[in-house]
Design a protein around this nucleic acid. Sequence first.
DNA 1: CAGTGGTCTAGACCACGCT
DNA 2: GCGTGGTCTAGACCACTGA
Lengths: 244, 244
Amino acid sequence: MNVLDNHSPIPLYHQLKAFIEGQIETGVWNPGDRVPSESDLGMQFHVSRTTVRQALGDLVNQGLLSRAQGKGTFVAPPRIQQPLTRLTGFTQDMAQRLKRPSSRVLKLDSLPASAQVAAALQIAAGDLVVALDRLRLADGAPMAVEIGRICFPGCEELLQEDLSNHSLYQILGEKWNIHPSRARQRMEATACPAETAALLEIRKGSPVLHIYRTTFDQHGRPFEQVESFYRGDRYVFQVELSSE
Amino acid sequence: MNVLDNHSPIPLYHQLKAFIEGQIETGVWNPGDRVPSESDLGMQFHVSRTTVRQALGDLVNQGLLSRAQGKGTFVAPPRIQQPLTRLTGFTQDMAQRLKRPSSRVLKLDSLPASAQVAAALQIAAGDLVVALDRLRLADGAPMAVEIGRICFPGCEELLQEDLSNHSLYQILGEKWNIHPSRARQRMEATACPAETAALLEIRKGSPVLHIYRTTFDQHGRPFEQVESFYRGDRYVFQVELSSE
DNA sequence: CAGTGGTCTAGACCACGCT
DNA sequence: GCGTGGTCTAGACCACTGA
């Protein structure tokens, strides 16, 4: 039996945590098992119940254990924490769904930012931004219309890029070292406007998932504002929510 | 000065936490300020230092305070990474949007689970679940229809509860110690079916945000499967995405 | 009922940061 | 040196669970 070392500079509750983590990692204790009671652990390791509780409390916070009054302390189920929602562009999103992405560029231009876009991108209204509008297809069928406004130092060179066949995010990463790291997204169900409906090959007024996204790079700077219309009958958005 | 109530069923450290949160929310204590020392708080509120530490520890975990050995405990800077998407029920969601939530119970019954619901709740098809269908209103106007299926040991007692005037999640927490901690949500834009449209006071076929959610408690057990229809013209869903 | 975790006390000694 | 938080003890009573 592992014993705790009173003279170690490592606090007793840290040593106890390490012991418990070991028991779980090596499979001695399995998910759903009840771990020894607080008094048992205290006696076994010759520490007070308070110290045991400090160790257990930390592990509960990390999600490794869960407590139930009157019943005991249990090994928590393994964390699935692969969030369903990763920040991705259309290309990667479709790849995850096992669909072949492609694009038709509707507009690629440089124009002054509207007040709303400027606010999102933290620039002045009227500053030049790159406008990139694309029809996005999955396995050759229309999936979404994206209306993008992009702004970063040197962004006007984007106008030379081939954005029909290459992922915007891939180009930004390779040529400008800009990596999307965070995005704020607003989503609602709306009736599809006529012009967009024609591109998506649906009837005007059909339900579409209407998304506004502002995307931030690895330094927290917003570089892109996109408005998208996803066909309601073809696209399901999944998200994992947590209470913390 | 606020004093703690020894005879309240609310633990002293909870009361102390509430006091401190209040000081920060009302701006009496500001980010960067040092809060009174642990011994000071103990003397001021006539509780032991251990109890003070329990309150402070919780608040540090929530990110509201930060500690520095030898220096003191400080009000933490407001978090930038405040995820826009918290796992909440309708009641809390509306409160955050500064709208007054209310409900009309459409159905409260016990019935056998469909195959799809059973799979989500990890039970056998045909096992009894509580069916709770509600029309949800914001400031008195229809906002969403929720079709809920709930299952946990003792769930049939839910049939006695007043679910028109009380939050389901609040009741689950108070009476059964069930706390939503994680949820998986699928969302799409659909045309509203006729029956639901009548309840929402919109035309049949109007765009609605159609959501399927499975909610898990603090032990990782699924206890609820809800299908919701939110009025597209009144509800915007916000989510924060991250690349990690 | 016995056993569990939840809360709480009144101490103690230590490591750290400042002055 | 002094005040801070960090660690730890040896108790106590409570609420809850399950047999």
